[in-house]
Structures are given as structure tokens and as C-alpha cells.
Design a protein around this nucleic acid. Structure first.
Lengths: 220, 220
DNA sequence: CGGTCTTTTGAACGGGGTCAACTTGCGTGG
DNA sequence: CCACGCAAGTTGACCCCGTTCAAAAGACCG
């Protein structure tokens, strides 16, 4: 489900601002939990930036096996790294507000801006760097290492909060790390038993990292 | 080992031509088998294009586990997808001639060329697409599927020759596919026993694909 | 030839997957 | 408010695919 909030010209944040200045028309849309933002193979007309919420992008094999490429959090841009068609599917994990602009207008704005090309390249290469790091994880790390790496990554991207609330399920984490949800659950329980993390309250998605250095060492 | 062949202005091939026209100064170097072209963390000053030979790029974990991101073949460009520092190591697999140009001059040439930005972006997003496909392989495919996918990929990139000569060892293939060399060897032997591939002559690196469609189905 | 590196093949092990049971959280409606 | 249904998460038991360890057979080069 998709709700158009508004269309406007106004200051924009982070990468988008660095790229295009404040001259590009954009709109805000709201996607409800679990809904698709775009599908694999669809035409890639827009660029997306998350305002609030979280998005996952994934690929599927014919028999349903799923690999999540990345999770996107507020201020992150996604959907840009495409030629003409999307190479994966993007879905809202939770209630999510997304800012949308035309791909073409971003490129045009970039052309007329000094350093614009480098900003644009940096944006794509950030995704590439993430993919390369993730290939190392998927190809060569053990299950406990993957889970520790995941926690450290999320901690950093959420700004090292005392208590982090993961927007994604165990299954999502598993499909991101190339594991099964049971293995993820066991690894987290193990970290809890070792007093490296703590589950806050009743829900299993609120996690406090008790020893960040040791967690970082576990995910080499 | 590195040998400077020459420095010249002359027509250049493929991506490089699309990017920069024929106006950019470039040099050719020869790297001997097994030598490093650049290392992880080094400053990324140059862009590389293979003339003849083959290159592998990899990352290492502290304990020596290795993940090969990609193999590069003649006409391929690499080393570009960097901000200021290289995020991985590049090594010649066999005797390799490489064309080298300054990163900065490529960007400048791009800026003054219509459609240059899109060409540049396409170059980087090609790498990104490959990385995304490879994450799906590393995260979700079985060993036989990975090996079949590898053969089909190499066959396509070598232009579907009747007989393909792989430049890389079983260990390289294994580190690319997130497996051990023994598993790769066993999977290839299995394919040979099923009459899907055939080893030509004495060396195990010359392979003929006997049934391309069936191989493609094996790597979904 | 001998020496070294690559590749294959076999045997045994174990990490993570599979299958299943159970618990818990969280609506939704009576 | 509780009863019910369902999705999410945990935990245990078993098993299998791919790793590990080991040996031997090429391939290549002096």
C-alpha cells in the first residue's frame, strides 16, 4: 500500500542534498509494513530516500530461496544503482516514509553541479563497498561471525544507541546472512548466554550490546 | 614484477573508449604471473584495463581466509570502483598486459563528453550487478549449483568458445565460490561423469561444455 | 629423471540445515 | 476481559553437505 503525502520543493538531507542541491522536485510516499516498493525487473524510473522506517532489498531463486542484499535505514538512498531496470525487489519492513525523485532529474542536477559526478559516484561505490564486504561475509565467515558482524553493523548504522530496536525479523536477518532463522536465533541466544548482548523487555528485537569490542572481535 | 611497455595516445577499446574517447593518455604495463597490481588500502590513483591475461581481486580476513570478488579478463576494467583507497587486492593470475590511466583524467574526460556520466555510472553499476548476483550465489546456492554457475559465467565471458581455457587454479575458483578446492574438484569430476563437461588433453584447465542448457539449469 | 605444485580421490568429522515441538507476543472478536 | 488464531521466536534431536585430513597421482620444469 502506498500513500502520497505531498509534492514539494524543499531542503533535502544527506546524500540527496550533496548530489542534487535543493533544486530537485521530490515527493513523499508512505509504504505500509510488508509492501513492495518496486519489483525485480521493473523499470527503474525513480530514486528513493528513506525518511523514516526501513526497507529490505532482495533477490529470489526460482524455488523461493531468498538473498537479502541490504537493509536501508533513514537517510539511506536506494534504487539508484540501476541501469534501466531494477535488479532486485524492494519492500518496506515496517511503516516507512520514502522520498522519491526522478532518476533523470538527479543526473541532470548532478551535471550542472561542481563535484556532482564525484558525489554520484561515491553514492554508487558505497553500495559496491557494502556488497564487497558482504561477499566476504557470505563466502568465508562462520555463522557466529556473521551474526556478530551483523550486530556491529547495525549498531554503527543506528548511531550506537544504548538500546537498538531491530526493524527486521529473524528470517530477514537469516536471509541477509545466508543462514536459516534457527541458526540466527541460536547464535543470538549464545551471545546472550555469554553476556555479550541483552534482550530488553518482552520483545526479542530490542537488543543492548554489552561489550562492543568483544563483539567486533567475534566478527573478524 | 612490473614492466612498462610504453606510454602513448592511441585508440582504446570498449568501456574505456566509451568513457573517455580517445583523448586520454595511457600506458601499458606487463605483470608476471602471481604478482600484485595493487594492494588493499593503497591509494587508488589509477584505473586499469586488461589487454591480455587475467586478474583476480580479493579480500582477506585476519586469519588468512580469502574471498575473491571477481576475475577480470581482456577488455575488463577494474580498480575504478574506488573512492580514494583500494578496498581489495588485485593480482595477475597469468602473464598479463594492463593499460593504465589516471583516475582523475578519466573523470575529467567524462565530464566534457555528452553521456559520459551515464557511461561512467554504467561501468560502476556493472560491477555492482555482478556483486549482487554473486551474493545470491554465496548466500543461497549449493556447491554443485555454484560450480555450474561459474562454468556458465566463464563460458559467456570468454565468448562461448568450443574449448575454454581457465586461467585460474582450483583454489582460486574455490575462493571465488566460497568453497574448498576439494569440493570444486569433486563437483567438476561429477559433471564430467555426467557427460556435461569434458577435460581436454592433459591439463585440467581446458574444459569443453558439452550441454550448455543443462549446465545453465543446474545453476538456477 | 627428481622436486614441486596442482589436482584428484577417499575417509571421517562437524557446523549448520531440517524437522518438529513448544512458547510467546499480539491482534481480533466474542 | 478472556478466548482464540496466527505469526514470530526458541530450543532440541537428527542428519547431511561440505570441510578437514590424508594419500596418491598427475603436470610441469629444472
Amino acid at each position: 500500500m502506498l500513500v502520497n503525502i505531498n509534492t514539494h520543493r524543499r531542503p533535502i538531507d544527506g546524500h540527496l542534498a550533496a548530489l542534487a542541491g535543493e533544486r530537485v522536485l521530490c515527493s513523499e510516499y508512505r509504504y505500509h509494513k510488508g509492501t513492495e516498493i518496486f519489483g525485480e525487473g521493473e523499470e527503474a524510473e525513480y530514486v528513493y530516500q528513506i525518511v523514516t522506517g526501513a526497507v529490505r532489498t532482495h533477490k529470489l531463486l526460482a524455488d523461493g530461496r531468498r538473498q537479502i542484499n541490504a537493509f536501508h535505514l533513514p537517510c539511506d538512498m536506494f534504487g539508484f544503482e540501476n541501469g534501466s531496470n531494477h535488479r532486485f525487489t524492494a519492500e518496506a519492513i515496517v511503516e516507512t516514509d520514502v522520498r522519491i525523485m526522478r532518476r533523470g532529474s538527479v543526473i541532470e542536477a548532478t551535471e550542472s553541479r561542481t563535484g556532482g559526478i564525484r558525489s554520484l559516484l561515491r553514492l554508487v561505490t558505497q553500495n559496491l563497498k557494502h556488497a564487497e564486504d558482504h561477499m566476504l561475509l557470505l563466502g568465508r565467515k562462520t555463522a557466529p561471525e556473521r551474526v556478530a558482524t551483523f550486530l556491529v553493523e547495525m549498531d554503527a548504522r543506528l548511531g550506537h544507541p544504548r538500546l537498538m530496536t531491530l526493524p527486521m525479523s529473524r528470517r530477514d536477518i537469516a536471509d541477509y546472512l545466508g543462514l536459516t532463522l534457527e541458526t540466527v536465533s541460536r547464535a543470538l541466544s549464545r551471545l546472550r548466554d555469554q553476556n555479550l548482548i541483552r534482550f530488553e523487555g518482552t520483545t526479542q528485537r530490542r537488543i543492548e550490546l554489552l561489550r562492543r569490542e568483544q563483539l567486533a572481535e567475534l566478527g573478524p
